[in-house]
Simulated assay, not measured.
Amino acid sequence: MKRKNMKNYILLNENAVYYECGFSCDNVVFLKLGSIKYFITDARYTVEAKEYAKDCVVIESSDFIKDVQKILKKSKIKKIVFDPNDFKLSFYQKLTNNIKIKFEAKENFSKLKRIIKSDEEIQLLKKAAQIGRDGFKELAKFIRKNGFRESENFLHFKAIEKMSHIGKYDLSFDPIVAINKNAAKPHALPTNTKLKLHDLLLVDAGVKHKRYCSDRTCTSYVDFETFSFKRDQKFKNKKHQKIYDLVYKAQLNAIEKARTGMKASQIDKLTRDVIEKAGFGKYFVHSTGHGVGLDIHEFPNINSRSDVIIEDNMVFTIEPGIYLPEEFGIRIEDTVVMKNGKAQIL
């Protein structure tokens, strides 16, 4: 994948800024003008910015528009790139008013820069995945001992507690905890439905390690003696078992056959074909996966429309699912890294 080396650009997105200089905050304008980086923030963050923002000129500002325009005019550049997804219209209009520099819109240019991970980033993502796995183990332990008759709402709270290791780590996203028919909604909100023996339980959760995300979904049979989030699940309900085995087969098919040089759409086809062949295609309602990194949803998108060529050091999820309305849903998700031409589970 060819990447154009842009000389001049402006960033507002926290994770995009962090990628550039190793520090970010919720109120920053980042400028890269030639070889000079400017980290413009307010008085709440300047001390830390000076300590942690690598190779940046840190500027304390109470009027971002005025100070950014001043730097841009002084630089005498003719053009600057920005991502329109990150800009409020009002901010853009004020910033571009009364300035002769051309603002060139390039959607997702920061995410495209980050599509291939460095070996160091892959180690951080691997560590995040391990911390996430430990969180799932702790949640399983709680469910075995105390989960009986607890509501989805309470189990959702416990998922936050266990995944974050009691607040030690930030979560990648708000966990999904869904029992039986609620699991038929891919992004189910927790309800007061209580967990019973022989139920089906879906949990989708992840944590951050040094800002890098993990993402995993497990669907499990509820038996309070042996309950776990392991992939080997034995359901009492035959239909649960049939759909579980089918989704797992689809996931393994993609993990085992994914290769660098394939299009992302071909990897999507590896899961979708298995599910469609079994007659459940219309119940697989989302894409096969998405990139993971500093953002929980990055590039590449693993869907039927994506022509992106998969390369080594790309990191993404493989998460087929089948959702039978008013009955149940099953999703199985792992995050993989492409290494030596093949997919490895992080």
Rank of each mutant, 00 (worst) to 15 (best):
A43H: 11
A184K: 01
F157N: 05
S265G: 00
I36Y: 01
G22P: 01
D232L: 04
V177Q: 06
E120Y: 05
F316I: 02
D312Q: 08
K4V: 05
N340V: 04
N108M: 07
L12H: 08
K102I: 15
N303E: 15
S220E: 00
L195A: 10
V81G: 00
V177W: 14
I332E: 15
N13R: 10
Q266Y: 00
F82C: 11
T226G: 07
Y45H: 13
Y244E: 08
P300T: 03
I71W: 15
K277M: 11
S220V: 02
K126D: 15
N301F: 09
E298C: 13
R149L: 06
D215G: 09
V336W: 00
I302F: 14
S118W: 07
F235N: 04
V57P: 01
Y244P: 07
V58D: 01
S118R: 13
R211W: 09
V177E: 12
K339M: 06
D134P: 03
H209A: 03
S62T: 07
C56W: 09
F103V: 13
V285M: 14
F109Y: 13
I302W: 14
D312N: 14
K208Y: 01
K185M: 09
L33K: 00
A205H: 01
G329I: 09
E51F: 04
E276R: 05
K257L: 13
A49R: 05
F23T: 00
I243M: 03
Y169I: 06
T226D: 02
T317Y: 00
E326D: 01
C213M: 12
G281Q: 02
P190Q: 06
K117D: 01
V315N: 14
V68D: 13
D312W: 00
A49P: 03
F136I: 12
K208R: 12
L72A: 07
K70F: 03
N340G: 15
F229M: 09
E326R: 15
N340A: 13
I179G: 05
E121A: 09
E121P: 09
I345A: 13
K162I: 12
K66F: 10
L197K: 15
Q93R: 15
S118N: 11
K238S: 07
Y169F: 12
S75V: 06
Y92D: 00
L11V: 08
K257M: 07
